[in-house]
């Protein structure tokens, strides 16, 4: 019998610093598997964000650049424009992409930049310690919203996939989750598809992944998965928001 499970070549052997039960590890693996499947590791450049994944460059086994907070799509634009033969992806969280980096992601998507963005939506700032994000749910507690998010003061959570799906420029925009095995399998397909569109030089591709942050949600990993399923998924509906013609 052949080997049915092994470490992707696009992942390094380094132990991650992610908290126990955090879903970052799953998404890293899915990205690495997509890179392996398409055989593109040697021409891939990743862009690490600022946030929990700031050290992502230690975990992937390919060239990497590290951006300032929110600027990964601009860096990816710079690389991809001058080296269209490279495969470029950004890996960003919600504080990075939906708050400080909103301008960069909207314009990169609208220009139809031919790179791929993996967007981790866990409804909170992770690395800085649980502050409110643009994606934090109404009433959800955060260290900067101790009584829960007051949408009268801070507005409603931003749905990035819906927002980017509204742009007229052709793109692949999808929202996936990694809370259950079936979702992980679907997310894997979506991530591979996103890279495939890039490989074909078709369009900008964006995969939002509804994830968990047990540490800053103050929950066990299992409770976090359940809370995400019950609270996040009804608001952040899964599915494709835009598919290129």
């Amino acid at each position: 019998m052949g080997k049915s499970f092994s470490q992707p070549a696009a992942l390094s052997a380094t132990h991650t610093h992610y908290c126990p039960g955090c879903t970052h590890g799953i998404v890293h693996r899915l990205v690495a598997e997509a890179i392996d499947d398409l055989g593109i590791r040697e021409k891939t450049v990743g862009i690490a964000p600022v946030g929990c994944a700031v050290l992502a460059y230690n975990y992937f086994n390919c060239d990497f650049q590290e951006a300032a907070h929110g600027r990964a799509p601009a860096m990816a634009t710079g690389i991809k424009r001058v080296r269209p033969d490279l495969m470029v992806f950004t890996y960003q969280g919600d504080g990075d992409l939906a708050s400080i980096g909103m301008g960069e992601i909207i314009h990169a998507a609208n220009r139809g930049e031919k790179f791929t963005t993996i967007f981790i939506n866990n409804a909170i700032y992770g690395m800085t310690g649980g502050q409110m994000a643009p994606t934090t749910m109404p009433g959800q507690r955060a260290t900067t919203a101790p009584l829960g998010r007051d949408t009268g003061e801070t507005g409603m959570p931003i749905r990035m996939a819906n927002l980017l799906g509204e742009l007229v420029t052709p793109a692949y925009v999808t929202r996936q989750a990694v809370l259950k095995p079936q979702q992980v399998n679907k997310a894997k397909k979506a991530i591979r598809q996103a890279f495939q569109y890039q490989l074909e030089n078709r369009c900008f591709s964006f995969v939002e992944v509804v994830s968990t942050c047990p540490t800053n949600w103050g929950m066990t990993p299992v409770d976090a998965l359940k809370w995400a399923e019950d609270t996040l998924l009804p608001y952040y509906e899964l599915g494709d928001y835009k598919v290129p013609e």
Binding site: M75, L86, E104
Partner: peptide, 17 residues
């Protein structure tokens, strides 16, 4: 680019490549 902020990072990306 969409702003000088973004342009700074387009330069960074291209130079890094």
């Amino acid at each position: 680019g969409e702003s000088e902020v973004a342009v700074g990072y387009m330069i960074f990306g291209a130079a890094g490549a």
